[in-house]
């Protein structure tokens, strides 16, 4: 197993994948993406999971793209592997529960959008920060964010790039299943996972197949639009400057 990922499958066939790249704080480095995909392969080759809990670090669930990738994109090198992760989650045979104890930004938040059930922490922040760096949202954000946040909050998140606090989202009434204190996020995820694991796994798989059809389509739609918008917005001369000043934070 990649050392930036921890996988554990318990006696109830609940799989828990913890994205654990402490050094780089769970950004989409090539190693991170490879580690994630390999761990998913390993899970499916060796186990029959009834459901998957996807979690991250205490401070950061997933921080999205790394600066070098974005600079490459602004230099016209288009080779984005991030989408492989969204597609992988949407195409699983079992439900995925995103247990976000820490912050989730940009593509990191998309991992939750591609999940079936989402748990967030009151103390952490969640943002679709793409526009802060001068380019349009990607990885499926433009078609998937509405489902989790509601259309108008999704609009605000995308246009302003604001990092919303979990407690603030809780007041707004989004579609996030639970927004609880950080220390309770994993326990909540395991409680839901246990309820799912008690069901007939064959029927769970069927249900997942049906429910994911819509998301698969939304992801294909997003790809068409977002790729075109990226070709345009990454080529704006201001974008590189904004990326650099964003990462100076």
């Amino acid at each position: 197993m990649a050392d930036n990922m921890h996988l554990h499958v318990d006696e109830n066939n609940i799989a828990h994948l913890k994205m654990n790249d402490v050094e780089n704080k769970n950004i989409f480095s090539n190693d991170f993406i490879r580690g994630f995909l390999e761990t998913m392969d390993e899970l499916e080759a060796n186990y029959k999971p009834h459901c998957l809990i996807l979690s991250g670090l205490d401070s950061v669930f997933c921080a999205g793209a790394e600066k070098d990738t974005l600079i490459d994109l602004s230099n016209g090198k288009i080779d984005v592997k991030d989408l492989l992760m969204s597609e992988r989650l949407v195409n699983t045979e079992y439900p995925v529960i995103a247990a976000m104890e820490g912050h989730a930004m940009g593509g990191g938040l998309v991992l939750a959008l591609c999940s079936d059930i989402v748990i967030a922490a009151r103390e952490s922040r969640y943002g679709a920060v793409f526009m802060n760096m001068g380019f349009t949202p990607g990885m499926g954000t433009t078609t998937l964010l509405q489902g989790l946040m509601g259309e108008f909050i999704a609009n605000e998140m995308m246009f302003t790039g604001k990092r919303f606090k979990g407690s603030e989202l809780a007041q707004k009434g989004t579609n996030i299943n639970y927004i609880v204190p950080k220390k309770d996020v994993l326990a909540k995820a395991f409680d839901i996972a246990l309820q799912i694991s008690e069901k007939n796994v064959k029927s769970v798989n069927l249900l997942k197949y049906t429910l994911s059809a819509k998301k698969k389509k939304l992801l294909v739609d997003a790809r068409l639009q977002e790729d075109m918008m990226h070709k345009l917005s990454f080529a704006f001369p201001e974008t590189k400057e904004r990326i650099n000043s964003f990462y100076a934070e």
Partner: peptide, 10 residues
Amino acid sequence: YGANSLDMIE
């Protein structure tokens, strides 16, 4: 007062 780094930025 319990602020994390993103709280401070906000």
